[in-house]
Amino acid sequence: MASHFRCENVMVRFGGVVACNDVSLDVEEGKIVGVIGPNGAGKTTLFNVLSRFQDFSEGKLFYREQRIDRFRPHQMVRLGLARTFQNINLFVEQSVLSNILIGSHCLIGNPLASLFWLPGARRTEQELTERAIETAALLHLERDLDTVVKHLPYGHQKRVELARALASRPKIILLDEPVAGCNDEESAELEKIVRRINRELGITVVLVEHDMSMVMSVCDYIYVLNFGANLARGTPAEIQSNPDVINAYLGKEE
């Protein structure tokens, strides 16, 4: 199995607090990888490191064996990495279509050509719009294309964010708590969508999630973090029976 994306021995400090201590993670091509851990385990920090929103003091970051330690977030998208946010972070005043189009920003080509509508820019624009509509259809959003995002229900907004991430045609997608705040029905639907993204579109998925049932049913393998450090790695079955993990979640009996 080829390593698609990995970090080695990542260290992040906030003042005196160590948010990530020597964390390593290896994401294999085409898999769904879960990252779990109790509150404050450093999951979100790790996520921000992986998408380059957070700098780290020590450690290495690889994308297909290419060192990307100092990439800026927008460069990650060019590499083929897209992410979503824990609390939905959409352009709420704009329509669903615009949101998805913004997601496909890395495909507009030369920005100056786009600005002055040079020949080719019009065609690119048309293609991007068509693709945006197709992406929306994939996530059952085709009826809401012209709706302003802030008027949509929560579950829809989650899917818009996913659509926006998919619009950049990523090879790997980072989902930060995709079902947080969703009801059972919405969760089940998102779970299905995550599976399809992986199986049918061949996109590698990394997801941080609190909802254990989703992680256990969807992931190929799981990393467990505790107090900012690696605790365990294994298949869902292995994790569920790992005594360290059980201790971390339920508290150690002294």
Binding site: S51, F53, R72, P73, H74, M76, V77, R78, A82, R83, F85, N89, L90, F91, V92, E93, Q94, S98, L101, I102, G103, H105, C106, I108, P111, S114, L115, W117, A121, E125, L128, R164, A165, S168
Partner: peptide, 25 residues
Amino acid sequence: RSGVGRALMALRDAEKAAESCGINR
């Protein structure tokens, strides 16, 4: 109406989200 205008408005509305979409701030 161009992708550039979209990028500017994205930066205006949500800077982090815009960067996560590949927009060079």
